[in-house]
Deep mutational scan, measured.
Amino acid sequence: LSDEDFKAVFGMTRSAFANLPLWKQQNLKKEKGLF
């Protein structure tokens, strides 16, 4: 994903996403069907 796409899908920047706990990152990915 480009940075723009990433922001559109997750509603946050990559750095904000990277600061989330791993389980939360994985839950978000599953919610968005990216897993």
Results as ranks from 00 to 15, higher is better:
E31N: 09
F6H: 02
D5Y: 04
G33C: 14
L20K: 04
F10I: 06
K30C: 10
D3L: 10
G11D: 04
F35R: 11
K24T: 07
T13P: 08
K32V: 07
E4K: 15
L20H: 00
L22V: 11
M12C: 10
L34F: 01
G11K: 08
E4A: 05
T13R: 03
M12Q: 04
S2G: 07
N27H: 08
K30Q: 13
K30W: 05
M12W: 04
W23E: 15
K24Q: 14
K30N: 07
N27I: 04
F6R: 01
F10V: 07
S2E: 05
A16W: 02
L1C: 02
F35C: 05
N27L: 11
F17T: 01
K32P: 02
E4S: 15
T13H: 07
N27D: 14
K32T: 08
T13K: 07
D3K: 14
D5W: 06
E31T: 07
P21T: 03
A16I: 04
E4V: 05
F10T: 08
S2V: 04
A16H: 09
G11H: 07
R14C: 02
N19S: 12
Q25P: 00
K30F: 04
M12P: 01
W23A: 15
E4Q: 15
K29E: 15
Q26L: 06
D3C: 13
A16K: 10
A18V: 10
Q26F: 13
Q25N: 00
G11E: 07
F6V: 01
D3S: 12
Q25K: 05
D5R: 10
F17L: 02
F10A: 05
E4Y: 15
W23P: 12
Q25F: 00
D5E: 14
K30Y: 08
N27F: 14
Q25H: 00
Q25I: 08
L28E: 04
M12T: 05
W23L: 06
S15G: 09
K24I: 08
A18K: 06
A18F: 09
A8L: 10
Q25A: 04
E4I: 15
L22Y: 12
N19K: 13
K24A: 10
L1S: 13
F35W: 15
F6C: 05
D3H: 09
V9M: 14
L34Q: 13
F10E: 04
F10P: 01
M12Y: 04
P21L: 00
V9L: 12
L34G: 15
L22W: 10
M12S: 03
A18M: 13
L34V: 12
N27R: 11
P21E: 04
K7P: 07
L28G: 01
K7M: 10
G11I: 00
K30R: 10
T13F: 01
S15Y: 05
D5S: 14
K32E: 05
G11M: 05
S2H: 00
D5C: 07
N19C: 14
L34P: 15
L34M: 10
D3Q: 14
D5G: 10
F17V: 01
L1F: 15
F10R: 01
A8S: 08
Q25W: 00
F17N: 00
E31H: 08
K24N: 05
P21I: 00
L20T: 01
D5A: 09
S15N: 08
N27V: 09
K24V: 12
F17Y: 12
K7N: 05
E31I: 06
A18P: 01
D3R: 06
F6Y: 09
F10S: 04
N27A: 14
K7I: 03
T13M: 03
T13A: 09
F35H: 09
A18C: 07
G11A: 07
L22N: 13
L20Q: 06
P21A: 03
P21K: 02
G11Y: 00
E31W: 04
L20V: 03
L34D: 11
E4R: 15
N19I: 09
W23S: 14
Q25S: 03
Q26T: 13
S2Q: 08
P21R: 00
R14I: 02
L20P: 00
D5M: 12
L20F: 02
E4H: 03
N27W: 08
K32G: 08
K32C: 06
F35I: 14
K7F: 09
L34A: 11
K24W: 08
N19L: 13
Q26Y: 06
G33W: 05
D3G: 13
R14M: 06
A18H: 09
K24Y: 06
Q25T: 01
D5Q: 14
G33D: 10
K30A: 12
D3I: 10
M12R: 03
F17Q: 01
G33M: 08
K24H: 14
N27E: 13
K29R: 10
G33S: 11
N19T: 11
V9D: 04
A8I: 11
N27Y: 12
